[in-house]
Design a protein around this nucleic acid. Structure first.
Length: 883
RNA sequence: GGGCGGUUAGCUCAGCUGGUUCAGAGCACCUGCCUUACAAGCAGGGGGUCAUAGGUUCGAACCCUAUACUGCCCACCA
């Protein structure tokens, strides 16, 4: 006997192991149509969170659907070395577990520990993805820092360098003082924050007590000031031309310069210029030939140039400067104001503009084909609106800073001999170049100094679709077969960091797009629309969720409310709904399995009607689901199936064919029902693989390799709308009888007589095979018979244009009934009037398509028929009440 | 400052090419049921001025214009 409650934990591991053992996830190139996906590689250090669950559930649904469509599916899993994040974790681990500081280790020692750490903790997230049911080809698991991928990174770097699309430059960068590395623009997140504007008085040199007041947000950088700038058209300061002002506290004279850049309206209209610590100041400095005084160390403390502040952390220094300025009597006032502060995506520390020498990719040189591909829909975005964002960014693209002052990552393949740089895939190759260039054959490896920096993690991830199939090898069989990939599923938050760059890399090295479709998922948030975060504690533990609701339940929860691109407001309730759905399916199976069979019994007309109706409805749902998949409307597809299975299949169909208690079922109906149910498991399999596989295995005896996961998706044919309409009419009558029961307090168990007012239409329905018996069974009627007039004390309803009623034992509440009927009548009349308006409008009659016109005429006729019936009932009611 | 969205039921959102009784779904809520598959359930029910104002059209939730509110992305205003 099957248990009343479905328990996912008992079957999940079994089926996952079974699928793996059968090798269903693995494919090699063959003559089938390929369907390939590359996973957005999660951080190797990470654990599964809601965002991963969402995008992996979507990818898995797409992969499973493609598999059911008979395609050669290849979903490549893997992880990303996540330079900054991992290095930070390793540093903390070393400090806490091994009592070691990074600064005490050599580079090689550190890397040894980092790899040790990676081996220990690196695979967790991939094992968690398996729990979710992800049908990845695990044999192809890749890592951005493994041998094959690393080789690709070096090749890409060298290739770009010799094409002149990669260069080294000294300029203002974003500095993360905590990680002590440079960041790309895309890794800086701007937040609007509360800040203070300090008004500081700079004495005009040579004057008695004339001051020029500047407004600054960062007074601690004033020791690096080398000018004060004002707008040349500002009359307030015109007389200062050629004058100097004295920087307070350090008492250094700096010139007053004049530049259009300065906004007269902001603050006092005077801007202190600190070329070492602000991008625009640096530009001003270059323009006006100013000295650059760097007052910061790489860890965010002040250096000796910041007189009196040396060694202090930058924000402590700000407080001290404030005090000192007050003491000196040159702090005019402090104002609160809102401003944008840039913070490091990884460490969240305030990013410091800083001058340094770094490597860059010339993005303008490689962006064009990737931009065109999206604009022309060669690459399709879902939802479409992200095209605009992408286009805007690509058209204003800025060069990409790819070097990082870290150790965990791909070390930059550049070697220096003196001031000369040699870029090559290996030290040996660089040495060869150096020998030729210098004409000195005695040079050896020891004379070469390799660049200390590593590459931005995204410099390896942007090659992912290229390197993942077979390294950086354009001629490989797998690469040729699986590239470009079919669809990329990822969050919109990494559109610039990853998606756009992959597109560029694809065209740069393969001359072709890396993916045909991009599906952008929304951000997972909690019910209050807050981002899921560790610090808020509002992020549920993914594995606990799976334990509680089952993988299918959680998948249902993630998918059922995930319109592409929009926020996904996560709520446990959705997973619960998914779990309940599994249970519903399970119990439908129990029901069918529990029936006795009478091998001799013929199929009743009612059962035949029910089966045919269900088949036609299923045709509709198959076509709908197919269309939804094509346009990546997974949420809709799942919800349609959910409603279809719960309402149409379980509540209606199974109840239609369900034998009386203890009675057997005929073999034909049972077989057809099993077939229908089997089709349902296939339709639902992409979303809920475990429960469907389990039910599939129990529906029929199965052979070797005969599993739901590798079955064939049904093909939709044109549904028989007339047949569907016929049964829908029956459903309407049945529902209305039930409504009467409910409102009159009649029990479901009580068999009732139902009458239909004589009409050709009802006679026609009753003559349809099985129709009347269906209504009698489902509405629990004594019989359905005809009457020429409505009986006294009856409760009636109109279905379509026909009047039905149930004669009641009890007296009816005449006033209430009259009010109800009057309302309905009023509504019907209003409806007819609105239709008439259209029909009397000559322009409508002339302009509307025939089908629309026909329909309006039918609406008009039906409406009039209904009005007539209502009027008769009302009349009947009034004569009753007179009695 | 530039750009892109959104506003439909108490909540979250569909509504695809303007046309069927189009005003929908899920959740929540209300009523009645432990009815022999399922209380993780069954049968029913209430609930909306489609943000506002104009316009186009035979016809508008849908197209256009303006307004209000709101979210996001990009950008060097100290």
């Amino acid at each position: 006997m099957l248990s009343v409650k479905f328990s996912p934990s008992e079957i999940e591991e079994k089926w996952y192991a079974h699928w793996m053992e059968r090798g269903y996830f693995h494919n090699e190139p063959d003559d089938r149509e390929p369907f390939s996906i590359v996973i957005p590689p999660p951080n190797v250090t990470g654990v599964l969170h809601m965002g991963h669950m969402l995008n992996n559930t979507i990818q898995d649904a797409l992969a499973r659907k493609a598999r059911l469509d008979g395609k050669n599916v290849c979903w490549v899993p893997g992880t990303d070395h996540a330079s900054i994040a991992t290095e930070a974790k390793v540093v903390r681990w070393l400090r806490e577990e091994k009592k070691l500081k990074k600064s005490d280790l050599t580079r090689a020692e550190f890397m040894g520990f980092a790899w040790e750490w990676k081996e220990k903790y690196g695979g967790i997230i991939l094992r968690q993805l398996q729990k979710l049911g992800s049908s990845c080809d695990w044999r192809r698991t890749a890592f951005t820092m493994d041998g094959v991928r690393s080789e690709g990174v070096l090749k890409a770097f060298v290739d770009l360098y010799y094409k002149g699309k990669l260069y080294r430059d000294f300029r203002m960068v974003n500095w993360d003082v905590e990680a002590k590395t440079v960041l790309s623009n895309e890794e800086v997140i701007h937040y609007e924050e509360q800040a203070q504007l300090y008004y500081v008085k700079y004495k005009v040199e040579g004057s008695e007590d004339e001051y020029l007041t500047v407004a600054t947000q960062r007074p601690e950088t004033m020791m690096g000031d080398t000018a004060v700038a004002v707008n040349p058209t500002d009359p307030r300061y015109a007389h200062l031309k050629g004058k100097n002002v004295i920087v307070p506290l350090v008492n250094r004279a700096v010139p007053v310069i004049f530049d259009d850049y300065v906004d007269k309206e902001f603050g006092t209209g005077a801007l202190k210029v600190t070329p070492a610590h602000a991008t625009e100041d640096y530009e001003l400095g270059k323009k006006h030939g100013l000295e650059v005084i760097d007052t910061l160390n790489d860890d965010g403390t002040m250096n000796e140039k910041a007189v009196g502040l040396a060694g202090m952390e930058r924000f402590a220094a700000r407080k001290k400067v404030k005090k000192d300025l007050e003491a000196a009597g040159v702090l005019e006032k402090i104002e609160d104001y809102r401003t944008n502060i840039g913070r490091s995506e990884r460490t969240n520390s305030v990013v410091e503009p800083r001058l340094s020498l770094q490597w860059y990719v010339d993005m303008k040189a490689i962006a064009k084909p990737a931009l065109d591909a999206v604009v022309s829909d060669e690459i399709d975005f879902y939802p479409k609106m992200f095209k605009n964002t992408y286009k805007h960014w690509m058209e204003n693209i800025r060069d990409w800073c790819i070097s990082r002052q870290l150790w965990w990552g791909h070390r930059i393949p550049a070697w220096y001999v003196g001031a000369e740089v040699f870029v090559a895939e290996s030290a040996e190759a660089a040495l060869e170049q150096a020998r030729q260039k210098t004409g000195n054959p005695a040079l050896n490896l020891g004379d070469l100094r390799q660049d200390e920096d590593v590459l931005d993690t995204w410099f390896s991830s942007w090659l992912w679709p290229i390197t993942v199939f077979d390294g950086f090898n354009p001629d490989s069989k797998d690469f040729k077969y699986y590239y470009p990939t079919s669809v990329l599923v990822t969050g919109w938050d990494i559109m610039f960091l990853w998606v756009a760059r992959m597109a560029m890399a694809g065209f740069e090295w393969k001359g072709e797009k890396p993916f045909k479709n991009v599906y952008f998922t929304g951000m997972v948030r909690d019910k209050q629309r807050r981002k899921m975060s560790k610090s808020l504690g509002n992020s549920p533990d993914a594995l606990l969720l799976i334990e509680e609701f089952g993988a299918d339940g959680v998948r249902f929860g993630m998918l059922s409310c995930s319109p592409a691109g929009g926020d996904l407001l996560f709520d446990d309730k959705l997973c619960e709904q998914g779990r309940n759905f599994c249970n519903k399916l399970w119990n439908a199976l129990r029901l069918i399995k529990g029936w006795e069979i009478d091998a001799q019994a013929p199929q009743s007309e009612t059962n035949a009607l029910a089966v045919n109706w269900m088949r036609e409805k299923m045709n509709q749902i198959i076509a709908q689901t197919e269309a939804d998949f094509k346009s990546f409307r997974l949420s809709e597809a799942l919800m349609n199936l959910y409603n279809f299975i719960w309402d149409d299949f379980c509540s209606w169909y199974l109840e239609m064919i369900k034998p009386e208690y203890g009675a057997p079922i005929d073999p034909a109906t049972l077989q057809q029902t099993v077939d229908l149910f089997e089709t349902l498991t296939i339709l639902l399999h992409p979303f809920m693989p475990f429960v469907t596989e389990e039910i599939w295995s129990r529906l029929k005896p199965r052979g070797e390799n005969e599993d739901c996961i590798v079955s064939r998706y049904p093909k939709a044919r044109q549904a028989d709308e007339a047949l569907i309409a016929q049964v829908e009419t029956a459903k309407d009558v049945i529902s209305k009888v039930r409504e009467v029961r409910n409102s009159k307090g009649l029990k479901m168990k009580e068999k009732l007589p139902l009458f239909a007012l004589e009409s050709a239409a009802v006679h026609a329905l009753v003559q349809e095979k099985g129709w009347k018996a269906l209504v009698v069974k489902m509405a629990n009627l004594e019989d359905l018979t005809f009457a020429r007039v409505e009986h006294n004390n009856s409760a009636g309803f109109i279905s379509g244009t026909e009047k039905y009623f149930i004669a009641l034992e009890q007296e009816i509440d005449v006033d209430a009934e009259r009010e109800k009927l009057s309302k309905e009548l009023e509504h019907a009349r209003g409806f007819v009037v609105s239709v008439e308006k259209k029909l009397h409008n000559e322009k409508f009659v002339a302009g509307a398509p025939v089908a629309v016109l026909e329909n309006e005429r039918k609406k008009h006729a039906d409406g009039q028929a209904r009005i007539k019936l209502l009027e008769e009932s009302l009349y009947k009611l009034s004569t009753t009440s007179l009695n």
